[in-house]
Simulated assay, not measured.
Amino acid sequence: MRNKGGKMTLDKMLCFFSIVLVFGGCIAETSAGPPKTEFDAIDFDFGRIPPDAVVTHIYKLTNSGGDSIVIEKVRPYCGCTKAPLTKTVIYPGETAPIELRFNSRGYRGRAKKSAAVTVKIGENTEKYRLTFVTQTDTGNIPFSTGEVGVYPYAVEFTDSIKTAKITITNRTAAKRVVRVDDYQSDRLKLSWNKKTLGPKKEAVLEVTRLVPADGIVASITIESPGRYNTRITIPVSERKATSRSSSRSGVHRSPDRPMYENPWQQQRK
C-alpha cells in the first residue's frame, strides 16, 4: 500500500478508510440489534381483597433491543379494570410501567381479568395479554385467611394524614414468615419491623405516602407461605368525604364494629 518512497498513495488511503468506515458501520448496526421486548411477568395474584375497593399492580415492560418501541394501547377486557398509561415510547434500555387497576365493587369470590397490550416494534405490531386473579372477600372484619390476620383491611389518606399502620397477626401455633410481595414504591414508603412472626405474635407495617393524598391509588400485597399460601392485598386510597372512618389515623373501619388497634388481640382476651 506504499509507493517506492514509502508513502501511501492517495487512492489507497481513500480505499483503506472506506473499508474501515463500512466495517465499523456494520459492527455498530450489529451491536444495536433489532427491537426486543421483555416483561418482568405477565400475570399477578392479588390474593384476597376487600369488597368495594380498588387494587393495582404495575407490570414492567423493558426494551432490551437497539431501537425504540411504542406502546400503542392497553385495552382491558372488562369495565372493572382501568389501565392508565403514563409512558408510550420506550427507548433502548428503558423500562415502562403498565398499570392495571381492578375495582371489586359488585364482585364476590374468585375473578380472573386481563388486558391486551399492543406494541409497535419496528415495522411490526405485537400483542401481549396481561392477566391477574383476585379473591374478593365477603366484607368480614378483621381480614383473615385463618392463618394470618391483617388490620385494617384498607388504608385511606387525607392531606393531614400521611402515615398509617397495618397490624399483621400470626394466628397459628407455629412460626410464620411474612413478606411484602408487591407495592408501588413511587407512591408509598414501607417500614417493616419483623419478617418472621412467632406463634400468636404480631408485627406492624408502617405505610407513608410519598405523593399527595388527592387521587392516590395504590395497594400492598402481603404473602405468607404455609400450609396454604396466604396472599392478601390491602388497598390504599384517598378518603372520601362520605367515608365512615376514624379521623385520627389512616384506617378504614366497619360501621358496626368499634375501632380496635388490633381486633385479633381483642378476640384473644
Rank of each mutant, 00 (worst) to 15 (best):
I90M: 04
P152Y: 10
W264C: 04
A241P: 03
K195M: 01
D52M: 02
G5F: 04
N124C: 01
G226N: 10
G65S: 03
T230Y: 05
E147T: 14
I27Y: 09
A32S: 12
G79Q: 02
I216G: 02
D40N: 15
Y91D: 07
D186M: 02
D52G: 02
F102G: 00
F17P: 01
V119E: 06
T196Q: 14
G109C: 02
D214Y: 08
D181I: 01
S245Y: 09
K82L: 12
R227S: 06
R239E: 05
E202N: 14
K269I: 11
I58Q: 11
T56A: 10
M259F: 13
P152K: 09
R129Q: 10
K165I: 01
G215S: 10
S249A: 12
G47N: 01
G25E: 07
I166T: 04
S246A: 08
I222R: 04
S254I: 01
I166Q: 03
T56C: 04
S219Y: 06
Y153T: 02
E156H: 08
P199K: 13
F23E: 00
T125M: 11
P152E: 05
T136P: 08
C80R: 14
D214A: 14
V180G: 00
P212W: 04
M1Q: 00
F143V: 04
V20P: 07
Y151S: 09
K189L: 09
L130N: 10
K195C: 00
E123F: 04
Y91F: 09
T169F: 05
T208F: 07
C80F: 08
V178L: 03
V177W: 14
E38Y: 13
V155C: 09
I49E: 08
P34L: 09
K112Y: 09
G122P: 10
N63L: 03
E72N: 14
R48Y: 10
P34K: 11
I161L: 14
R108H: 13
Y128V: 02
P255D: 07
R105Q: 08
R171A: 05
K36N: 03
S160W: 11
K175D: 13
F143Q: 04
V177R: 15
N140F: 12
R231Q: 11
T172P: 14
G215N: 12
R253K: 13
I69P: 09
E156R: 06
S246C: 15
A111V: 00
K120I: 04
F46E: 01
T125C: 05
R248Y: 11
A218T: 03
